[in-house]
């Protein structure tokens, strides 16, 4: 009895535990993730040329809001560098004469991504010529 007990004790830590099936499955998923994660980031790092932020602002919609009007816009940065503190300016024009300007700041316009925002005007943008553009950014 006592002999067997001590044998068991000695045996237990030595014997390599058989890895449960599900542990292997989850570990394989983890390995897959590591490989894919490093693979894709490495691939992107190697192939991407660093192009400066290329920001294009486009009009999305306009609607009455509060005392005035809201113009929603979409900002697409097709460069592969992120721009921070992007200032967006919208101008209502009547011919060549500027009627009203509004501005907004986006915290970030990430590389190859899209962000949305809005500008408020007191005059109805539909009665004028609306121009929206990015005026500047900061490197993050």
């Amino acid at each position: 009895m006592t002999e067997k007990k001590s044998e068991d004790k000695k045996d237990a830590p030595k014997k390599s535990r058989k890895t449960p099936f599900w542990e292997l499955v989850i570990a394989a998923a983890g390995l897959f993730l590591v490989v894919v994660a490093t693979g894709t980031t490495l691939y992107r790092a190697m192939t991407e040329e660093t192009t400066p932020p290329q920001i294009k602002v486009s009009f999305a919609s306009s609607e009455p809001s509060g005392d005035g009007y809201l113009v929603k816009f979409r900002v697409v940065n097709s460069g592969n560098q992120t721009a921070a503190a992007v200032t967006i300016e919208g101008e209502l024009k009547n011919g060549t004469e500027s009627v009203e300007t509004s501005s907004a700041t986006l915290t970030y316009a990430p590389a190859n991504s899209e962000r949305r925002g809005g500008l408020y005007f007191s005059k109805n943008p539909q009665q004028f010529d609306l121009q929206i553009r990015a005026t500047g950014y900061e490197e993050p």
Binding site: P13, S16, R17, E23, I26, A27, G30, L31, L33, V34
Partner: peptide, 19 residues
């Protein structure tokens, strides 16, 4: 764990959990 193999498996399990 009882072997490097076990440690490696646990590492990838941990990564999957983190993900």
């Amino acid at each position: 764990t009882s072997s490097v193999w076990d440690d490696t498996i646990d590492t990838f399990v941990a990564y999957a959990v983190g993900f």
